[in-house]
Design a protein around this nucleic acid. Sequence first.
RNA 1: GGAGAGGUGGGUGAGUGGCUGAAACCACCGGUUUGCUAAACCGGCGUACUCCGAUUAGGGGUACCGAGGGUUCGAAUCCCUCCCUCUCCGCCA
Length: 492
Amino acid sequence: MLDAQFIRDNPGLVRKAIADKNAGEADLVDRALETDQQRRASLTDLQTLQQQLNEAGKQIGPLMKEGKRDEAAPLIEQTTQLKEQLKEVEETVRKREEAFNAVMLEIPNIPHESVPVGHSPEENEVVFEWDELPSFDFEPKPHWELATKHGLIDFERGAKVTGAGFPFYIGKGARLQRALIQFFLDLAGEAGYTEMQPPLVINEASGIGTGQLPDKEGQMYMTEPKIEELNNVLWRKLTELYQENENIEEPKIINTFVRDVMSEGHDLDVALKATAKVLAEQMIEEGLFALYMIPTAEVPVTNFHRDEILDAADLPIKYAAYTPCFRREAGSYGKDVRGLNRLHQFDKVELVRFVHPDESYDHLEQLREDAERAVQQLGLPYRRVLMCTGDMGFTQTKKYDLEVWSAGQGRWLEVSSISNFEAFQARRANIRFRPEGGGKPQFVHTLNGSALALPRIVAALLENNQQADGSIMIPECLRRYTGFDRITEVPG
RNA sequence: GGAGAGGUGGGUGAGUGGCUGAAACCACCGGUUUGCUAAACCGGCGUACUCCGAUUAGGGGUACCGAGGGUUCGAAUCCCUCCCUCUCCGCCA
């Protein structure tokens, strides 16, 4: 989320950002300004009314104490009128704030000036590329063949047990995964990151804090309560209420609905059950009670400090977390999803930094180097891509991707993306710091980057290190973790 | 799952209907004093929003004591619902 004041002051900049990022309708800024205007107008009304009420209260107080009830009476009469007005204005304010917030959540973050303007992946800048790709005197095989041949990964059984995109890792395959995780975490530890094991399921507020919600809800797996249970709870509650009251005043809609059903000739109990069902469906639809499986450790780790005021002396704060990640990735087909290229569940070590706003672009480069170091030590040919405005995503101001060479597929695979969010997440998640020497709390800048996502690293390792005899060499730096230095064909 | 206690500012913690945006202490900031540091003393110090002021300085107002409702002319304080934390018991990896 951007600062409302910033949008008021720089509508042109924000319009340009929306256009450059291809993220949202052209009139977003105008809608933001308009709803902001309305919201503030009704806020002023509200505050005036509250002020009048408070003043009346201050006059009434002493009178009541002295027992001059009749002198207070006209004032009390006045407050009842004011309170009626207040109710209406409150409702208006609520609606307008809602409208304003909805628009604000749709406005993307503003790209940094160093980011190339562009609308397609072709306009990304390859800033660095390994000059020599590995060569083979045989036809290198894709990793899914290698993995299957060596019994490292079982895609079919994964599909049977869960679905496509949920493989089993077996034997040396599983061991390799564990080795990579430990290697990455150790590297992060050496670079000064504090290791963290976060929850794998998060609530709605966390999703909003880092920007996955509301716009990317479809990307996450979601847990929801059993509708029958919710149904029953609601039905019991409604029955209770109707026994007390005959009528439910608020919200009227429930009462209306119940009567509608009864007017069709059903009795109260049937009507209540029907109402409960509709309510339950609606609540689930609206995602109330929903918890989400994390699509990346960024979400729980960044939200670790949600609603906190950090000490300036503690910055930068650096965390490293290994977690499985869950992504629905609806609508991708073909070679992109073959083998390990795109999974619904995968492992990743994520690096997160909370930093002083003045230093966030230095930290972006440091974070990038932390991730690159891992790729380098694994000896994988890679390239670094600076994402253009249109390919970068809603919440970032600047983002690098690291891509490793996949010899068996003859293409680059994204294994890391490293981003600066400036204050965008911090503002949503309300993460601030108290400046050195006191003063008002300011929003921190947050950054994160993968170091690294495992599946494509495994794919590249298998493909790039395959030998003429079919065996696969394990990179030097991993051997102390794997306990073996090559994967040979197991008979049977 | 059963029983009880509790959620107040950056922290500890007082506060049972108006004089409380909230004592006191700690932390922090400014100053005085002192070879230096420390101590002592004096002063300052919540957040968000909003209006006025020239987008300064500054001033006015509103809201916020876990969240949401209610009672009341008036709620941190009373009532209801929910969430969370802690203690004891039970169950359990």
